[in-house]
Computed example of a mutant assay.
Amino acid sequence: MRSSQTYQPGVPAWLIPIAVVAAAVVLLPLVGMLARLPMGQFLSLITSVPSLEALRLSLITASSAAVLCVLLGVPLAVTLVRIEFPGRQLARAFVLLPLVLPPVVGGLALLYTFGRRGVVGAPLSAVGIDIAFSTIAVVLAQIFVSMPFVVITIESALLSMGTKYEIAAASLGASPWRSLLMVTVPSLMPAILSGGILAFARSLGEFGATITFAGSLQGVTRTLPLEIYLQREADPDAAIALSVLLVLIAVVIVASVYRLPARYRGLRP
């Protein structure tokens, strides 16, 4: 009689110490930071006016960036996976470039494009529209670094899903537009949710592109990571408290993705 228990493959014993070391590399710096946290002043430090303004701005811009990443990233991912065209792999490489590009380089690219003397920014500035060093610049910087997370998540879901459902819809007379809205997008909703959460988390922690392209104006472009950077010299206790707050928010966001069933993380259709 076969056992009803699910078979669990074993792992070599030597793998566990290496895994422990790897976890320690990530966790020990966080433990070190927590050890320096002024617990008695934590609440007052994170509820100061500059801290609350930075947190508010971070939540607003990160939410806006995540929504725009989904609205733009889903069509982009579908195009890269479902449509054959010359240079598709090169286009995909450029779309995913922000994953490996230093954020400050991305900030410079945005500045030379949307700044007052940029290719796009100069004509806009001539009619009184300035993007650089504004809240819009913060959102653009966050979109630049976060978009690849949405594209990768949607691409993985599309490749896992295959084309059988779209082919079935087409055989029943559905137009490409109807098939997209009624079949593809509903099937991608778990991956869209996962990609949107990851984009929000990445946008929340964005620093390099933001400070290069948007600057650090309190209440306008100074997000939580920028506030932490400025406070590290002026008030180290405040910097540690805000860092812990950002870590806690990030942990909640990432945990919310992993607590979802596999199908809601885009791991299978």
Rank of each mutant, 00 (worst) to 15 (best):
M1T: 11
Q5P: 06
Q5A: 12
Q5Y: 13
T6L: 15
A13D: 09
I16H: 06
I18A: 12
A22G: 11
V25N: 03
A35R: 12
L37I: 09
P38T: 05
G40N: 12
G40R: 10
Q41C: 07
S44H: 14
S44Q: 15
S51D: 07
L52K: 07
E53Y: 09
E53C: 08
E53V: 07
L57C: 04
L57M: 05
L59F: 08
I60T: 14
T61I: 05
S63K: 04
S64D: 07
A66F: 06
G73V: 08
V74Q: 04
L76S: 10
A77R: 03
L80S: 01
I83Q: 12
F85S: 02
P86Y: 05
Q89S: 14
A91W: 09
V100H: 09
P102G: 09
V104M: 08
G106L: 07
L110S: 06
L110I: 09
G115A: 07
G115V: 08
R116W: 06
G118Q: 11
G118S: 06
V119T: 13
L124V: 04
I129G: 09
F133H: 07
S134C: 01
I136Q: 14
Q142I: 02
M147V: 13
V150T: 00
V151D: 00
I152N: 01
T153M: 13
I154P: 00
L158N: 00
L159C: 01
S160V: 02
M161Q: 15
G162K: 05
K164G: 10
K164Y: 14
I167T: 15
G173C: 05
W177C: 11
L180A: 12
M182N: 11
L188E: 02
M189K: 14
P190C: 02
P190G: 10
L193H: 14
G195A: 03
G196D: 04
I197Y: 06
L198F: 10
A201T: 12
G205R: 07
G205N: 06
G205V: 07
E206Y: 04
F207L: 10
F213P: 02
G219N: 08
R222W: 05
L224H: 03
L226R: 01
Y229S: 12
Y229Q: 08
L230I: 13
Q231K: 13
E233C: 05
E233F: 09
I240M: 03
L246K: 02
V247L: 14
V252C: 13
A255W: 10
S256P: 02
L260M: 13
P261R: 01
A262K: 10
L267G: 12
R268C: 09
P269I: 04
P269T: 11
